[in-house]
Lab assay of single mutants.
Amino acid sequence: VGDQVLEIVPSNEEQIKNLLQLEAQEHLQLDFWKSPTTPGETAHVRVPFVNVQAVKVFLESQGIAYSIMIED
């Protein structure tokens, strides 16, 4: 199991704000291929294997929908 690319769908401005804060966490080494800008629009982010669980827990705790787009 390696890195994953998640497709994330924020449903409101609050969730977009939370994702932008997540993007700013440099220690997570997230690679946003497509940043969140509009509710209902997908964002794509590559998550290093060591941080996959932490990111998924965060998304679930914020009620942000996501799916695994690419499993490496």
Rank of each mutant, 00 (worst) to 15 (best):
A24D: 07
H27S: 11
F49R: 07
E60R: 04
S67N: 08
P39Y: 04
Q62P: 00
S61L: 12
N18S: 14
E71W: 09
K17S: 08
E23Y: 13
L22V: 03
Y66W: 07
T38A: 13
E23D: 08
A24T: 09
D31C: 15
E41N: 07
Q29N: 13
P36A: 12
F58N: 01
A43V: 15
I70T: 11
E41Q: 08
I16F: 07
N12V: 01
H44R: 15
T42S: 13
P36T: 06
Q62H: 14
Q25T: 11
T38C: 08
V57R: 13
A65M: 11
D72A: 12
Q25C: 13
Q62I: 10
Q62W: 14
Q15C: 02
P10T: 05
P48D: 05
S67F: 08
N51R: 04
F49K: 12
K34Y: 06
K56M: 13
L59M: 03
V9H: 09
A65L: 09
K34A: 07
P39N: 03
E14K: 08
W33D: 10
T42H: 09
K17T: 11
I64Y: 03
Q29D: 09
H27A: 09
G2S: 08
E71G: 09
L6R: 00
L59F: 03
P39Q: 04
P39L: 06
H44K: 11
A54M: 10
Q4M: 14
S61Q: 12
V9L: 11
V50I: 12
A54G: 04
S67Y: 08
V50Q: 13
K34D: 14
Q25I: 09
V52K: 03
S67T: 13
M69D: 03
L28C: 08
D3C: 15
Q29R: 09
V52D: 02
V1Q: 15
Q25A: 11
E71D: 13
A65K: 14
W33N: 06
E13F: 11
A65W: 14
L30P: 01
A43R: 03
V9W: 14
Q25M: 14
E14V: 06
N12Y: 02
T37F: 08
E23H: 12
Q21M: 12
F58G: 01
S35N: 08
I16T: 04
V55C: 02
E23C: 13
P39S: 04
K34R: 06
Y66R: 01
Q4H: 08
S35R: 15
L6K: 00
L22T: 02
S11E: 13
L6T: 00
P10I: 07
D31A: 10
P10L: 08
W33G: 05
T37A: 06
P39E: 03
D31K: 14
T38D: 06
L28R: 02
L59I: 02
S11C: 14
F32C: 03
I16H: 03
Q21P: 01
I64G: 00
S67D: 05
T42W: 04
V45K: 00
I8L: 08
H27F: 09
E60C: 04
I68Q: 05
W33Q: 11
R46N: 05
N18H: 13
F49N: 11
I8S: 00
D72N: 13
P48Q: 06
F49V: 11
L6I: 07
S67Q: 09
S67H: 05
H44W: 15
I16W: 05
L19K: 00
E23M: 15
N12E: 03
K34F: 06
Q53C: 11
F58E: 03
N51A: 10
F32E: 02
F32Y: 05
D31Y: 15
V47W: 01
L59N: 00
K56R: 10
A24G: 09
V5A: 04
V5I: 13
V9S: 07
L22E: 02
S61R: 08
G63V: 02
A43W: 15
F58K: 02
